[in-house]
Design a protein around this nucleic acid. Structure first.
Lengths: 176, 176
DNA sequence: CGCTGATTAGTCAAATTTGATGATATGAGC
DNA sequence: GCTCATATCATCAAATTTGACTAATCAGCG
């Protein structure tokens, strides 16, 4: 449902055609939202079927696919608020794909595990910097950016501890 | 791929039939892994097709569906290590469904938003406690539990700030 | 001008994921 | 010894998600 909420929330601000919507999501929200192009078109169709948005076809010059302009309806507005309340009210836990590796980390020698996780660590640092850059950039919601910054800092801290404990394992293995 | 890694990782420890696997995932790993029953069966089939695991049918008394025992193969072992290295090496950003609500929080009066988020906050606290309980419980990987604890604490902190800023908005709105 | 690479706009087939369901067995309580 | 709840073992149809693709227009340039 959070994807529908996103689409409705954006259409609520301005009517738009699909491409615009996707551009915006990819450029400004890719750091926090995961909605690929075809998914967005799929959902737009669903939302239109359900009467939450309207599709108007706009003639385009040439043989290019005509673009469709989506606009939220009053029912869509109401649905948006419903989804919004539901979203704010409930906590949905996230799962970290990266945890699966951690769960089986003992399958590798500590030395190798540490090297691999150091690459991961570097990528997390980069991501943090990229997000801190966005801060100025309008279009991205401030609170969400701050959320991701908080989150990434916590992730970095945790990973530092893991790395430290791996270093210790290496040491005691070296002694033995 | 992280789901395949999980299945292979578990089968690497013991051969198992699908039901057992699913039981374990639901009971001990649901806090960190999201793999529903049918998904697991689907992936087991795929892994078997690819030769990473073998399926042996075991006759069951009565008319119950026969259970199939899955066992990892040497190729599966190699594939597991490949997936494990890849998983440890790369950072995959997570997206928070709950951010979509935050992004549009201004659509609600601060007062209502705060009330809703307070419910969310309570659920997060509960989740934290539940995870802290697991700590003793064997079967769940320690590092992953600690990861989630770190994460949840950071989430709680962040949400407290959001709540505080909403309270402030309410106040200044009250004055006006 | 004619070519190349980017941009615009959206579609399709295929892979993945899940809610709902089936059918039997086992155990607890009466 | 009967009934209802729960456990065992999965499958199916339907919804969702995405990688790959089409096909036209446009901007730059030698």
């Amino acid at each position: 449902m959070h994807r529908r909420l996103l689409l409705l929330g954006l259409l609520r601000q301005h009517k738009m055609h699909g491409y615009q919507l996707n551009e915006f999501i990819e450029r400004d929200l890719s750091f926090c939202a995961e909605v690929k192009r075809p998914t967005a078109y799929y959902l737009l169709e669903k939302l239109a079927e359900a009467g939450y948005i309207t599709e108007e076809e706009e003639e385009r010059r040439g043989g290019r696919p005509p673009r469709r302009i989506y606009r939220i309806t009053p029912r869509g507005e109401a649905y948006f608020l419903e989804l919004l309340r539901e979203n704010l009210r409930t906590y949905r836990r996230v799962t970290f794909p990266g945890d699966m590796g951690i769960a089986f980390i003992d399958a590798l020698p500590p030395h190798e595990a540490r090297e691999l996780l150091e690459e991961r660590y570097a990528q997390m640092r980069e991501m943090l910097e990229r997000i801190q850059q966005i801060s100025g950039h309008a279009g991205a919601p401030r609170l969400v950016i701050e959320h991701h910054i908080t989150h990434l800092k916590a992730e970095l801290n945790w990973l530092e501890e893991v790395l430290a404990s791996l270093a210790q394992e290496e040491e005691s293995a070296g002694e033995a």
